[in-house]
């Protein structure tokens, strides 16, 4: 494996991480919900794709299906669990979504078994393309390309479409959004559905690229948290860049040391980012600054 192969492969998977993190960012900044089960929605997407492949359907048909299922499931979780019981308190939200996460994780393990699954040749029989020195997996190329389209679509939604703006506005101020004629709470539900939909789509893209097991979900949640925290609030370009960086760390670290050391590198990045943020925020005499 040449260095370039690893770098490009890492960047391509980084785009998918950016998609997942984008979803986490939408729920965290726009809907003000800390969704601990975010990674589990990624896995639901992957397992929907796996089931459809098992039924003999092509993998691209899994994209709309997985998106629909994860999106609707997310809206159900938001409408019937988060909104009535933990609308604003971060601790309660984490406890609640942790409950959802444990339920989903073990449901997946019960239905599909605890062992990892993969579908390396889901997109095409030829799994790699060779460009001179560089060997690239077809699945990664497609995952990266589709990821870019998804990110662009989300950018368009939030920057150019009034519904995306409504979601952001409702997160900031529900009453204000309602004054402008939007059903604020329903808009937030849509926003949360969008965040889980992004996770589900990324899950479909991930299945041909990585081994997926029901117990991986927390890694995806934490990884997207790293991206979101390093990138900061609502900055789409920074999310994409940090996603790429995490992808690089992950594949470079896995090549140089091992997968778990690569994950450790990711989390160390998180600690460094926190430390930098703490230094820059200028801690006051009370030990707290609001910005």
């Amino acid at each position: 494996m040449t260095t370039l192969t690893i770098v490009i492969g890492g960047l391509l998977i980084g785009i998918v991480y950016a998609c997942i993190a984008l979803g986490f960012s939408v729920s965290m900044w726009a809907c003000r919900v800390t969704n601990f089960a975010h990674g589990h929605f990624v896995l639901i997407g992957a397992y929907v794709a796996y089931t459809m492949l098992g039924l003999g359907l092509p993998i691209y048909s899994a994209l709309p299906f997985a998106g629909l299922i994860t999106g609707i499931l997310g809206m159900v979780v938001y409408r019937f669990l988060v909104q009535p019981f933990a609308p604003s308190d971060a601790g309660l939200q984490i406890a609640l979504t942790l409950g959802v996460a444990i339920l989903l994780e073990n449901l997946l393990a019960l239905v599909f078994g605890p062992d990892p699954i993969s579908a390396g040749s889901a997109w095409s029989a030829a799994t790699t393309v060779v460009l001179g020195e560089v060997r690239l997996s077809v699945s990664r190329l497609i995952a990266g390309g589709a990821g870019i389209v998804i990110i662009w679509g989300t950018w368009w939604l939030f920057e150019r479409n009034r519904w995306g703006m409504a979601i952001e506005a409702a997160g900031e101020n529900v009453a204000g959004a309602e004054l402008t004629g939007y059903a604020g709470r329903r808009v937030l539900m849509l926003g949360f559905g969008l965040s889980t939909l992004l996770a589900g789509l990324a899950g479909v893209l991930l299945l041909p690229v990585a081994n997926v097991s029901p117990y991986d979900a927390v890694d995806y949640t934490l990884r997207s948290f790293v991206v979101v925290l390093v990138a900061g609030q609502g900055n789409l370009r920074a999310i994409l860049l940090t996603g790429l960086l995490v992808g690089l760390l992950q594949s470079g670290g896995a090549y140089l040391a091992s997968t778990d050391m690569a994950t450790v590198a990711c989390y160390v990045l998180l600690l460094v980012a926190l430390w930098v943020r703490r230094v820059r925020s200028g801690v006051t005499a009370l030990g707290v600054s609001e910005r």
């Binding site: 669990l81 406890a95 609640l96 942790l98 409950g99 959802v100 996460a101 444990i102 339920l103 989903l104 994780e105 073990n106 449901l107 019960l110």
Partner: peptide
């Protein structure tokens, strides 16, 4: 674990 998930919720 599934029971616990339901119990937490």
């Amino acid at each position: 674990h599934m029971i616990y998930g339901v119990i937490i919720i």
